[in-house]
Simulated assay, not measured.
Amino acid sequence: MASAAQSCTESNELQLDSRDNYWFGGWLRWVPTSNEMLRAAEEKILGYVRNTYRSWFVKTKSGDRIRTIFMNNSESDDKTPIVLVHGMAGGIGLWVQNLDALSNVRPLYAFDLIGFGRSTRRKFPSNADDSEKEFVNSIEEWREEVGVDKMILVGHSLGGFLSYSYSIHYPERVKHLILVDPWGFPERDVDFYEKHDFPLWLKVVRQIMITFNPLSGLRAAGPFGLGSGVERVVSYGRIEPWDWKEGMLTTKLQLHYCSIATVLLPNLTDPVPKLQLHYLICLN
C-alpha cells in the first residue's frame, strides 16, 4: 500500500451541519455517516493503491474546496495528464482499480465533483441547465488552480456527461476526450406540451417526481438503508467477502465507500437529481 503525502488540514475539511446528522440534538445518529467516517472510507479504499499519491483540497475562486489526488509513476512530467471525472454517487475512491495502471503511463489527477465525496456541498440552482453550468465552471476553476494547460479528460457516467459539456465550452483545454458509459440525453422539444394533451394525473406525477430526490429515501432509512442492506446481502453469500481478491476490488468495499461518501452523507440540495429528472421525465 502507498503512503500518501497528505497536505490537507482540518480547516479544509468538509463541514457538516450537525442537524443533518443527528436526531434529538445528537442523542441518536440516524444517518450512519460523518466527516470522520467519510475520511476513513476514503483512506481505506485508497489504501489499496500501490503507487504514491498526493491528496489535498483545491480551493477555487468561487470558494469551493475540491478534493483532489495526484499521481505520477511514469518518470515523465512532460506528458499531458489524465484527469478522471467520476459518475453519480461516486468519488475519487471508485477509480482505485485504475489509478496505478494509468499513473504508470502519465501524470494523473482525480477529484470529487462538487456535491460529492469530500468536496464542497453547496446549494445548487433549481434549474438543471444552471446546475450543469456550475459543474462545468467548477471543473474549469479547478483546472486553473491546479495549473493544467491541457488534459486527457476521462469521464464515467455523470462524469462523462459533464466532461462532454466541459469539452464543448473549453475545447482548447481538452487534448483527448474519453467517455466511459456516459450519460446521454436527446435534445428537449420546446413544443412538447403543445403537441401532447396529457391527463391531469400524469401532470401531478410529473411535478412530484421533479421535486423528489432519489437519494433521500436511503438517507431517511438511516441505519436500515444502503449500508445495512450491503451487510445483509454479504451475509447471505451473494457478494464475495470484503477483501482484495485477484486484483479486483470487491463489491462490498465499493458500496461502503459510495454509501458513506455520497449516498448517505446529507446534502439537501443534490444537483444530480435535478439534472437527471430534468432530462429524463418525458413531460420536460
Score class of each variant (00 low, 15 high):
90 G>A: 06
140 E>I: 13
122 R>I: 01
184 G>N: 15
81 P>E: 01
81 P>K: 06
169 H>I: 11
134 E>D: 08
163 S>V: 06
97 Q>A: 13
138 S>P: 05
100 D>W: 12
179 L>Q: 01
159 G>T: 04
151 M>D: 02
80 T>M: 00
89 A>G: 00
150 K>L: 12
107 P>W: 02
184 G>S: 15
103 S>E: 12
82 I>S: 04
114 I>N: 03
96 V>Y: 07
159 G>F: 07
91 G>F: 09
131 S>D: 00
119 S>D: 08
87 G>W: 12
155 G>N: 15
101 A>G: 05
145 E>F: 02
149 D>Y: 12
91 G>K: 13
126 S>W: 04
184 G>H: 09
136 V>G: 00
86 H>S: 04
106 R>K: 06
100 D>T: 05
133 K>I: 15
143 R>W: 01
159 G>R: 06
165 S>G: 07
85 V>P: 07
107 P>N: 02
160 G>R: 10
130 D>S: 10
78 D>L: 11
76 S>L: 03
89 A>V: 06
132 E>V: 15
103 S>C: 12
149 D>K: 15
117 G>F: 10
157 S>P: 06
186 P>S: 09
154 V>R: 04
132 E>F: 05
87 G>M: 11
104 N>S: 07
175 K>R: 13
118 R>W: 08
133 K>Y: 10
79 K>N: 01
175 K>Y: 01
136 V>R: 02
86 H>L: 01
84 L>V: 00
75 E>V: 09
121 R>Y: 01
162 L>V: 13
129 D>Y: 05
130 D>W: 05
82 I>N: 08
173 R>D: 11
171 P>I: 00
78 D>H: 11
87 G>C: 07
184 G>I: 14
82 I>G: 07
172 E>Y: 02
119 S>H: 03
138 S>Y: 03
147 G>D: 06
144 E>L: 13
106 R>T: 01
75 E>S: 10
187 E>P: 03
188 R>K: 12
166 Y>T: 10
174 V>Q: 05
188 R>A: 10
99 L>W: 06
189 D>Q: 07
88 M>K: 10
178 I>V: 15
128 A>Y: 14
103 S>W: 10
186 P>Y: 09
151 M>Q: 09
105 V>M: 11
101 A>K: 08
170 Y>I: 00
86 H>K: 03
127 N>Y: 02
117 G>E: 11
101 A>L: 01
156 H>I: 09
79 K>C: 07
135 F>Q: 03
105 V>F: 14
111 F>E: 06
139 I>K: 04
127 N>H: 02
112 D>R: 08
81 P>R: 04
151 M>C: 13
183 W>D: 11
104 N>W: 08
108 L>E: 07
